[in-house]
C-alpha cells in the first residue's frame, strides 16, 4: 500500500517538473537560431541531393528506354547529360526535366521544414539546439502558419540581414516570418538538458533528487568518486571488494532518502556519481 502511494507521488512530481519546464517561455537568441538553421540546411541539402540523384537516374533511364523503342541509337545517360549541358540544342524534353527537377528540389527543401514544424513543433537542428516553435496563443502550429514562415524564409534567411535585424529589434525576438505567421521560437529546456545524463536518465535523476537529502562532502571526495565511477561504470574495470564497498558506503552515508521512499544502495551510488558529474558540468565556465 505504502509502495503504491509513493509511486503515485513520484509520478506527480516528475510531471510537475516537466510542467514547470513547459510553462517557462524564453525567446531564443540570434546565434542559437543561426546554428540550428545551419544544421537543418545541411540535412535538407543532403535530402535534396539524394532525391536529385534518384530522379536523375530514373529520368535518364526512362528517356533511354523511350529512345530504344523509337529505334534511335545512343547511350542512356549520355543523351541526358549532353542535352542538359547544352540546352541551346533545344529540346522540350530537357526543359520539362529541368523544371521537374527544380520543382522536386523546392518540394524537398521546403517540405523538410514544413513537415517537421507542423508534425513535431521543431526541426532536427532546432531540437538539437534546444529550441521549439510555438504559436503566440500557446498552441501547436497550423499548416497555414508553417507555410507562412516558410515563404518568408527567402527574405529572412537567404538575404539574412532583415532576419537578423528583426530578431534583434523586436521584443519577442521574431523574424519577419514569425511576425507574419504569429509564431515565436523559444527554448525548450527539457530537450536541451536531456543530453547531459550518463549514468541515470533525466527523469530518474530529478525524481531521486527531489526525494532525498544530500549530506556534506569535500571537493577531494567528489573528484575521487567521479574518477572511481567512470573507471567502474564506463570502463568496466574490476575492483577489489574493499574499494567497491568503500564507495557504496560513502554513497549510503551521503544520501538519506525520505521516509516513504526506498532507494536501492546501487541506485544511491549511481545517483551520487551523476550528481557530482552534473555539478562539475555546471561549474565549468562557458
Amino acid at each position: 500500500m505504502t509502495k503504491n502511494t509513493s509511486h503515485q507521488n513520484s509520478n506527480a512530481l516528475t510531471q510537475d517538473a516537466y510542467a514547470g519546464v513547459k510553462v517557462q517561455i524564453q525567446p531564443a537568441t540570434v546565434l542559437r537560431r543561426a546554428l540550428a538553421y545551419c544544421i537543418d540546411l545541411g540535412f535538407a541539402g543532403v535530402l535534396c541531393y539524394i532525391m536529385m540523384f534518384v530522379a536523375f537516374i530514373l529520368i535518364s533511364g526512362m528517356i533511354g528506354f523511350a529512345a530504344v523503342e523509337k529505334g534511335k541509337d545512343f547511350s542512356l545517360p549520355k543523351y541526358v547529360t549532353e542535352k542538359i549541358m547544352h540546352p541551346a540544342a533545344g529540346d522540350w524534353l530537357v526543359l520539362i526535366v529541368l523544371l521537374g527537377m527544380l520543382l522536386l528540389l523546392l518540394l524537398v527543401n521546403h517540405g523538410y521544414f514544413i513537415w517537421h514544424e507542423f508534425k513535431k513543433g521543431t526541426t532536427p537542428g532546432k531540437r538539437f539546439m534546444g529550441l521549439k516553435v510555438i504559436s503566440l496563443d500557446g498552441g501547436k502550429l497550423t499548416l497555414k502558419q508553417c507555410i507562412g514562415r516558410e515563404a518568408l524564409r527567402y527574405i529572412d534567411c537567404t538575404l539574412f540581414i532583415p532576419g537578423i535585424l528583426t530578431i534583434m529589434l523586436t521584443e519577442k525576438k521574431q523574424r519577419l516570418g514569425d511576425l507574419f505567421a504569429g509564431t515565436i521560437v523559444v527554448y525548450s529546456r527539457a530537450l536541451e538538458n536531456e543530453i547531459h545524463y550518463l549514468y541515470l536518465s533525466r527523469e530518474n535523476f530529478l525524481l531521486i533528487e527531489s526525494q532525498v537529502s544530500v549530506g556534506y562532502y569535500s571537493e577531494e571526495d567528489e573528484v575521487k568518486c567521479m574518477h572511481f565511477a567512470y573507471q567502474y561504470l564506463g570502463r568496466k574495470i574490476q575492483f577489489d571488494q574493499a574499494t567497491l564497498e568503500k564507495w557504496e558506503n560513502f554513497a549510503d552515508a551521503l544520501v538519506t532518502a525520505n521516509d516513504d521512499f526506498s532507494l536501492d544502495p546501487q541506485d544511491k551510488f549511481l545517483f551520487v556519481a551523476e550528481l557530482f558529474r552534473q555539478k562539475s558540468i555546471a561549474r565549468k565556465p562557458a
Partner: peptide
C-alpha cells in the same frame, strides 16, 4: 518506518543504460 516486503524497485536497472 514501513519496511518494504520485497526488495525496493530499482530506478536504473544495470541493463537499462549500458555504456
Amino acid at each position: 518506518m514501513n519496511q518494504p516486503l520485497s526488495a525496493p524497485p530499482r530506478f536504473a536497472s544495470p541493463d537499462a543504460k549500458k555504456i
